[in-house]
């Protein structure tokens, strides 16, 4: 059985290590915060200018001056700090954030990522995604394995405009987990329950090696 959104978020949370500063993107990556393993403490960065993001507020306690990068209301923690967008992207571009978990539209076998633009459709913008994939040491992408149409999203080459070149280190889909390296290419390292290698091959355009644990 393929993984659900929550399963994928829980798997992504296993990439967290104690003491990490982490940036979580919008969508499934946001759910990762609900699955932080016991005994591990991480600091969540919000690129609009906050370290130490707390949970959503209780009803009636939302503060218009306290939002995350998805423009949702959030809360602060005793350890939180606030800063400008320039300082925020100095953290990101300067390599001070250990891990970025974000969504994807397409991933290529060399680690290229496309997740901001579909030509011919209204383009909303890349926000901070290009800075995150260029500046953060380890980039984990979480996405469905195929399009709604069934078309593969793990490709030999991305057909959509890129967000970054050779930037993806780990890909988590509803079917499994893939390591991606500049020289090694794609390696399937985990399968979701009852998912077969044959099914993954049928739904993947990219070539991949097998090292399922």
């Amino acid at each position: 059985m393929a993984w659900t959104r929550e399963d994928m978020a829980a798997r992504a949370a296993l990439e967290l290590k104690d003491g990490f500063y982490v940036n979580l993107g919008i969508g499934i990556p946001t759910l990762v915060a609900n699955h932080i393993p016991a005994g591990i403490s991480v600091t969540l960065q919000s690129e609009n200018g906050m370290l130490g993001m707390g949970p959503f507020p209780y009803p009636g306690e939302a503060d218009a001056d306290l939002i995350n990068a998805g423009k949702q209301t959030i809360t602060e923690l005793p350890s939180s700090s606030y800063f400008s967008s320039a300082d925020s992207f100095a953290m990101i571009r300067g390599g001070h954030i250990a891990l970025s978990i974000l969504g994807g539209m397409q991933v290529a076998q060399n680690g290229d990522l496309a997740n901001w633009m579909v030509p011919g459709k209204m383009v909303k913008g890349m926000g901070g995604a290009m800075d995150l994939v260029a500046g953060v040491g380890r980039v984990v992408v979480v996405m469905d394995h195929v399009e709604k149409s069934g078309a593969p999203k793990l490709l030999t080459r991305c057909t959509l405009p890129l967000t970054g070149v050779g930037v993806v280190d780990l890909l988590i889909t509803d079917l499994g987990v893939f390591e991606i390296g500049p020289d090694e290419g794609v390696t399937l390292i985990e399968l979701a329950p009852d998912v077969t290698v044959e099914e993954v091959k049928a739904k993947t355009e990219a070539a991949f090696a097998l090292a399922v644990k």
């Binding site: 949970p55 507020p57 939302a62 939002i67």
Partner: peptide
């Protein structure tokens, strides 16, 4: 006015 785009809360 300080409008909020996405009021997001958790149950108390």
């Amino acid at each position: 006015e300080k409008r909020i785009e996405r009021v997001t809360t958790r149950p108390r």
